[in-house]
């Protein structure tokens, strides 16, 4: 399970995104982030190394 990050680290993560949020907005976003962490755990479970993305580059259609 991905460990929740502390307030300072979360504020830094948001700042890196370029969003300027109020303290209330930061708190709200943190609620959503807590709900998305279990989804990230599922996504980062090991896959076969050769598993290709569903969007594979095709030069003729780019």
């Amino acid at each position: 399970m991905t460990a929740p990050i502390d307030d300072t680290a979360f504020a830094a993560l948001v700042a890196r995104s370029g969003l300027a949020l109020s303290p209330v907005q930061l708190t709200s976003l943190r609620e959503g982030y807590a709900l998305i962490l279990p989804l990230l755990d599922r996504l980062h479970a090991p896959l076969p190394r050769a598993a290709e993305p569903a969007l594979t580059f095709t030069p003729e259609q780019a």
Binding site: V14, S17, L19, Q25, L29, G32, I36, L40, L43, A54
Partner: peptide
């Protein structure tokens, strides 16, 4: 806004899955 604080690796793993 949640999409702005997730990572490139998160996206690529989602698309692989």
């Amino acid at each position: 806004a949640l999409g702005g604080i997730l990572s490139a690796a998160d996206y690529v793993q989602a698309v692989r899955r």
